[in-house]
């Protein structure tokens, strides 16, 4: 189902204009004392329950901004 996302600059646009950037996980962890396991968990392991999640999208075929939005993976719709 084609859906649309709300770019903070351009407004609602077709999802195929965007690149998906994954769940919001907070800033990169501090590297002093970061164990290998912690790093690889941070980069690859995710909890994906079937409920809305905050995530990153890039408007590559538009204004070129990375932005956060909340989307429901059960419906593919943005949640406001």
């Amino acid at each position: 189902m084609t859906f649309r996302l709300t770019c903070p600059v351009c407004g609602k646009r077709d999802v195929y204009e965007f690149t998906f950037g994954g769940q919001e996980r907070g800033p990169r962890p501090e590297q002093d004392g970061l164990s290998a396991e912690e790093h690889f968990r941070w980069t690859q392991f995710r909890l994906i329950p079937n409920e809305p999640q905050e995530e990153w999208w890039y408007h590559g075929q538009g204004c070129g901004v990375w932005f956060r939005t909340t989307r429901d993976p059960g419906t593919n719709r943005e949640v406001r």
Binding site: M1, T19, F20, N50, E55, R71, G74, N76
Partner: peptide, 14 residues
């Protein structure tokens, strides 16, 4: 394959 994680069974015109 569409890139965003989801649990739908949506097909697209695209």
């Amino acid at each position: 394959m569409d890139p965003q994680v989801n649990y739908t069974n949506d097909a697209t015109a695209y």
